[in-house]
Design a protein around this nucleic acid. Structure first.
Lengths: 121, 121
DNA sequence: CGCTATACGGAATAATTCTTCCCTGCCTTA
DNA sequence: TAAGGCAGGGAAGAATTATTCCGTATAGCG
C-alpha cells in the first residue's frame, strides 16, 4: 500500500519542484552515475557503497515514477536490468554538473565548516 | 546540547558537500529570498508561509553556522536582525538560479508526474 | 549440494527532520 | 492596560527518510 503524505507538497516555484522530485539522499548521485554510463542496479550499488541496497532500489523506483529514468528489464535469467535517463532526466544533467562543480570548487571551505560544526563525522 | 549525528556525513564529491550544507527543506528558498533582498526574519517567514516559523529559525542558524549567511543584530528595541549572504553564499546564487530555472522550464511535466504519483497533495 | 551472483521487496526499527505549542522580553499603538 | 509586532528558543511528538535483516527466485561453477 502506498504511503500517503500528511504534509502537502508545495509547487510554487521551480525550486520546490526540483526539491520534490530530487528529494532523497541518493537520487542526485544515482542520476549522476547513470549519466556516466553506470546502468545496472548492482553496479550502482557498488558505486555508492555508503547507501544501503534497499534505499537505492526505492529511490530508483521513485526516479522511475517521476519519469527521470527508464527501467529496461531483460527477460533472462539470471535477471538483468538497466536504467536509462529519460529526456527529462537528461535535462537535469547540466544542473547536476553545476551543483557538483560548485561543491568541488569550494571543497576546502565547505569541509572546514562541516568539520567545525560536527565534532564527530 | 547539540545533536550528534549517528550516520557519518559523506564528503566524497561535490554533490555530497552541496547536499550536506543545503540539506533542509527550506534552506535553498531562504538563500534565494535573502539574495532577493529580503533580509529580516519576519519578512522571510512571510515569504515562506508554508514553513513553520520555528524551522526557519533553525535553518537560518544552520546556514549561519555553515557560513552561507551572516547575521547582523542591531542593538535596539524592538529587536532588529538582518541576514546577508557571505561570499560563499553569493557563490551559490547562480547555482540556485540554475536549479530554479530547470524547475520552471519543466513545470508542466513535473506537475504532471508529481500529481500522478500523489493522489492526494 | 553449497556457494555466488543477478535482482527485488516486506517489515521492523533507527535516525533525522518538521510541526506544534508554549514561553521570554520589550516597544508601539489604541 | 491590553493587543500586536519584533525576535527567539525549549520540548514533545508527528512525519518522513534511511538502515538492517530476512525472504523470494534462478543460473552457473566446482
Amino acid at each position: 500500500m502506498a504511503y500517503e503524505r500528511k504534509i502537502p507538497i508545495s509547487m510554487d516555484c521551480g525550486l520546490d519542484l526540483f526539491r520534490e522530485v530530487l528529494n532523497g539522499k541518493w537520487k542526485i548521485a544515482l542520476l549522476y552515475y547513470i549519466s556516466e554510463g553506470i546502468k545496472r542496479p548492482g553496479a550502482l550499488q557498488r558505486s555508492i557503497p555508503e547507501a544501503s541496497r534497499r534505499v537505492l532500489n526505492i529511490q530508483l523506483n521513485q526516479l522511475e515514477n517521476y519519469e527521470l529514468v527508464k527501467k529496461k528489464i531483460f527477460k533472462q535469467l539470471p535477471p538483468k536490468v538497466e536504467y536509462y535517463l529519460t529526456e527529462l532526466g537528461e535535462s537535469l544533467v547540466p544542473v547536476i554538473r553545476t551543483i557538483g562543480d560548485w561543491g568541488d570548487a569550494h571543497r576546502e571551505e565547505l569541509e572546514r565548516v562541516i568539520y567545525f560544526n560536527n565534532a564527530n563525522a
